[in-house]
Amino acid sequence: MNDGSSSMRTPLSKVRHLGSAHSGTQHAWQMRATSIALVPLTIGFVWLVLTLIGKDYNSVRAALGGPMASIVMLLFLLTGIWHMKLGMQTIIEDYVHGEHAKTAALLVNAFFCYGIGLACVYAVLRISFV
C-alpha cells in the first residue's frame, strides 16, 4: 500500500470501507436495509391493492388518495424501486462483461429506475392532490 507519496494517511485508512469494488459494503448494506423495509411495505401494498378490487374509478381515487394509502404506496414504490435498481445492477455486473456494454446497461438501468420511480410517485401525488 506504500505508494511513495507524502500522504499522512495510513494504508488501512485508505482501504477501510472500500474493498475490491471501491464502493465497499454500501451496495450490500443498502440491499439488506431495503429488504427489511420491504417486508412490511409489501404486505401493506398487497393489502391496499386487495381493498381496491372491484371498486369504481371514484372510489379507487378516493381510497388511493387518502394519507395512509398514499404514504404506504410511496414508501413501497421508492424502497422497491431502489431495491430493484441495486438488484439489476448485480445481474448486469454478473452477466455483461464487455466494458462498454456494461456501462451502457448500467446507465439504462439507472434511467429506467429513476424514470419509472418518478412516474409512479408523480401519479400517486396527482391522485392525492388533484
Partner: peptide, 23 residues
C-alpha cells in the same frame, strides 16, 4: 422473479398513471 418484478413496475406505473388521469 426479481427480473420479472422489474418489468412488472411498467404495469404498476401504467395503472397508477391511468388512475391519476381520468375515468
Amino acid at each position: 422473479t426479481g427480473g420479472a418484478l422489474y418489468a412488472g413496475t411498467l404495469l404498476l406505473a401504467w395503472w397508477l398513471i391511468a388512475a391519476s388521469t381520468d375515468a
